[in-house]
Amino acid sequence: MTTKNTTQQLCRTAIEKQVTKAMYVSLTKRVMALIRYTERNKPWRDQRGPQDRINGAILKTIDGELTWDLHAAEPKSLEDHLFDAVSGDMSNELKRAQRFRHVSISRPDALELHEPKMHAFIEEASETPSEVPGLVLVDAIAKLREIAHRDRGVLMILDGYDRGAFTRREVMRVTGISRSAYDAAFKRLVRMAAPLAVEVLGALDEAI
């Protein structure tokens, strides 16, 4: 008797093929760096740790709760799929926690206006460490746009992200940027965004 291969069976077979210690070493590092970057840029503290987040993502994928599209035009590797899943979870946590208005660093007046609320919130958050502090103090992306205001390629990638295009192929399609221009601009974007937290926090100190 033969058994039909269901989507979940195919997915499990693909997982089995790609699960290696090296893959998880790389993924763990990426998740650690993602948590660190988010913590640097948002008043958000990770309550779970990289391993728990990865465990959750793989479990949801095996159970079929999370779809790993193996038939996509450009199928993701298991590592990329799990990394995006972890990123999605963190994004949901940030979304749930956004209880206060978004305050841009380019508007110090607004920052001042919200300062008492911000302090009250930060106090409350520090007294209850299990809660995710949700106030978005700084518009990191607005700052990034400021830094990159003369870099057409970087701005095109950010525009692509704004329009919901997150892969190279999608960004190229919605913005019309060429592959080589994308690759070069993407490297510049990473270079600009990496030290952003330090600059933004410095600017914030000045503003306050």
């Binding site: 990123s87 992306i141 974007l189 990496a194």
Partner: peptide
Amino acid sequence: MTTPDTTDRDLATFMAVARAVATEEAK
């Protein structure tokens, strides 16, 4: 591809940049 509202869009863009930076830092 999705068409989120402004707040969601800002967050999605931030997370895309964060993923790119994290992937580079991890190396």
